[in-house]
Amino acid sequence: MSTTSAPSRSHAGAPAPAQRGKLTFGGLLVSEWIKLTTVRSTVWSLAILVLISVGLGLLIATFLEAGDAGAAGGPGGPGSPADAAAAAATDWALTSATAGMSMASLVAAILGALNITSEYSTGMIRSSLAAVPKRLPVLFAKAVVLALVTFGVGLITLFGTYLIVTPILEGKGFEAHLDDPQTVIALIGGAAYLAIVAVFSLGLGTIIRSGAGAIAAAVGVLLILPPLFLLVPLEWLHDLAPYLLSSAGGQMHTIPTGSTDVEGWVAVIVSVAWAVVSLVVAAVLLKRRDA
């Protein structure tokens, strides 16, 4: 801290007119991109997300044996000719590639929550909101950047894992179908689900304003609600279970087998709705509360 070099030498300096800028949403996107990429927690989170996906994919591909396929494949259980056919048709490379999705979605949730709660815990939020007194553009820029980054990393990770496990599985006689549009849609759906979870969690973080609280809430919604809905002996709760974020999101990265509870496009809408509702509540509170 010895670098206080002659501060009186240069004053504020008359501004060159060219330096005059304007507050724009594009500028906010750049700002949020800089913010996201210049803290270590982002690098760590994304590295963990990639490691989990690739690691679990490799684990499954390595230890999967031809005999296991039938047992794990069809929902109707092994034995019937229809199931054998279904098992053969199952894209095990896709199963491997998306094996880490549940944990990866938790990492996305942490990334999304920290994106705003770290601003609250450090006081940065006051700098952010003083520069953008209308406030909401900050939240929306965060959501856009977070969604794009999570989607991008998710997409590369999922397709990457798929390509890594394909030769291993093909060596054991399994088939991989990357030329199947349904497989491609499932991989893209997985990446989109990660983006949705990150934005949902960004909303939670804005609402709760504490990292620990927001992450706990996200874990609750993603991991604790689904078994809870099925354990409680209430029929209507069981009916609602498929509309939970992790249930609907889970469908986005699997190929429909015909026995799914809601249709594919419904699952997408339901997942997006979770993120939108969270973000809208966050926006109302952000606008209303003192920073």
Partner: peptide
């Protein structure tokens, strides 16, 4: 980076 992020909002 803090100043860069702040500046970016206004295209400074």
């Amino acid at each position: 980076n803090h100043l860069r992020a702040m500046a970016a909002t206004h295209g400074i």
